[in-house]
Write a protein that binds this DNA or RNA. Sequence first.
DNA 1: GCATAAAATAGAAACGTTTCCAGAAACGAC
DNA 2: GTCGTTTCTGGAAACGTTTCTATTTTATGC
Lengths: 348, 348
Amino acid sequence: MPRSKGKKSSAPVTIHDVAERAGVAISSISRVLSGHPDVSERMRIKVQKAADELGYEPDFFAQSLRSGATKTIGFIIRDISNPFFGVIAQCCEQELRKAGYSMLLMNSDGDVATESINIAQLRRRKIDGLIASLVSEDIPELNSTLEKLNAPVVLLDREVVGLNSSAILANHHQGVEDATLDLISRGHNRIAFISGSTRVYTTRDRLKGFKSAFKKAGVAYPTDLVSLGKFDAEFGESETKRLFTLKDRPTALLSGGIGSTAGAMRGLKKLGLVPGKDLAFVAIDEWPMFDVYGQQFSSVYRDAAMIGREAAAALLEMISGGSPRTIMVETHYIVRDSSSGGLKAKKK
Amino acid sequence: MPRSKGKKSSAPVTIHDVAERAGVAISSISRVLSGHPDVSERMRIKVQKAADELGYEPDFFAQSLRSGATKTIGFIIRDISNPFFGVIAQCCEQELRKAGYSMLLMNSDGDVATESINIAQLRRRKIDGLIASLVSEDIPELNSTLEKLNAPVVLLDREVVGLNSSAILANHHQGVEDATLDLISRGHNRIAFISGSTRVYTTRDRLKGFKSAFKKAGVAYPTDLVSLGKFDAEFGESETKRLFTLKDRPTALLSGGIGSTAGAMRGLKKLGLVPGKDLAFVAIDEWPMFDVYGQQFSSVYRDAAMIGREAAAALLEMISGGSPRTIMVETHYIVRDSSSGGLKAKKK
DNA sequence: GCATAAAATAGAAACGTTTCCAGAAACGAC
DNA sequence: GTCGTTTCTGGAAACGTTTCTATTTTATGC
């Protein structure tokens, strides 16, 4: 018995009670409260009064069962404790709330199976729409799973071919290329790059920018310093340790995403290397308050709040019949202290 | 029409379809699938087979409407982009998911009215339980609003008198007292303290620790350096600026909570003051990765992941009939670089 | 084999809405 | 007045389950 008994909490007031009090049919109550046009002024007042007096609130589940609309949006991300996702979720929830929708939050824990279970759960809950940052883009059953949802979908930084969904994509390659070119122009050519799996757009687009910078600069692309695997901190840390203990070790590092950056920073610390001094360091995506920490980190910045708002807007648009669309969000290379360093030996 | 038509998506399979296929009554389907004891093995197999073949999934809303249980938990916090809350939400959601519950996330934006609207919304959605970090403890209608929910409640770091709910409280005063005593022993007596409103337990308990440290040390308590108002960064920044431009300005600062800390750091930066050098600085609550930033910040630490898990556990316990309980989480003063500084003039 | 109890099943009544349909009232035009 | 339209209202049928009650079947003890 999940709902506590409540000492003397009178049974909840239903549409029948209102009908009885107003002395009209229940269908009239429903019509008045849902703003149906064919209702006389006299009826409207009578019903409104009775409803107010009784403090009537329509039962959500009965409404959803009958009408099919749940006013509920699913939100799936790897990990809500990642502050970048946190900002997206916050802004998104605010926008959805304004429009009368509530948000069902689920962490996928970066796991394909968990993600799939979550989507199934959301389908049973008949969500009106889904906003998701998927673990991977090329899971075989993914498209059919999402289509079975029978609800509009907005993907965050993912490109799933053949799926009729909206997407909020970031223009990663631009920011990463700018950052890489800056590092090259400072004299670096051994630049390390750590990011997640190439099975998602995010990584592929970052890599594109990284590669094109070397091409544009006419410098050899350091294949051995590129490490792509997972977005989490564990991977970032172990790969940082590995790369920075190589014989011909890198002089600069780009870390892709909050998780990678966290891992990289921890790894560097354990190796006793200081960003901005012993190496040049650029983080892709910012931590909150990145600009005020004692040490100033360079970054490739994108506006998480805007991503959240745009995702909500795109979804609401689709719910009310609009077509899917793709929104491109700009990224910007922000130069701070940590872009220096790593070349002392060579400068001499 | 919120649910898209779906080109040829066959109508969803209902319990009637399964009953027809298996050649039994619909009540038998329900009994088998909900694990009712009075079911023959033959029936169980027959029904299971039919259900599997049709890919039957019970309609969530019909179930909830009839049974009253929604398997949904409300989660209300000020702001999910605060990484401290993010960790709590993440761990909490994981635990709830394991138990078959989903989480409805709502930001209160630190606003009493928004919070109240959110609670009303959750009531209409007949949540099975609520986990909340409330904006304030002494809103007049708060108790009745929460009681009308008719579901168990777990409060995060809040003490609401007369409410029959569980609570996860942190032992703030211990950590704050330790930190303050350390600063006093280093020679500080002009220590500033910024935190949120005293209308919540969090602030009151921190203040208690702050005050008792001065008493224990026999040092005059600097009333003019205590600033209590809001938890957000704006307040933290403006108060930091105000306090550190006083004539007899403080030599140390404790900032209460992630928001205050963010604001304080920004304020100090604008004033050109460096923590650990121009002043001693202790943050109450940690940022993720606090320990690896170039600059090492001292903190009063508490385990957010544990808070999230405990909250989920306490709620699930109450849902299955257990009594409310209060869990006390320890805090620890962690000394890092930023506890130094601020006393150069005096040292000479 | 027969009464009796226990186990298994079917049927129907909820749960609280929305929405369809039919009919009543009101209205103007003739 | 009668007729055809509108405008409004009431009744009832959904929506897809769970659960209560009644009935049938099976098992048990003698």
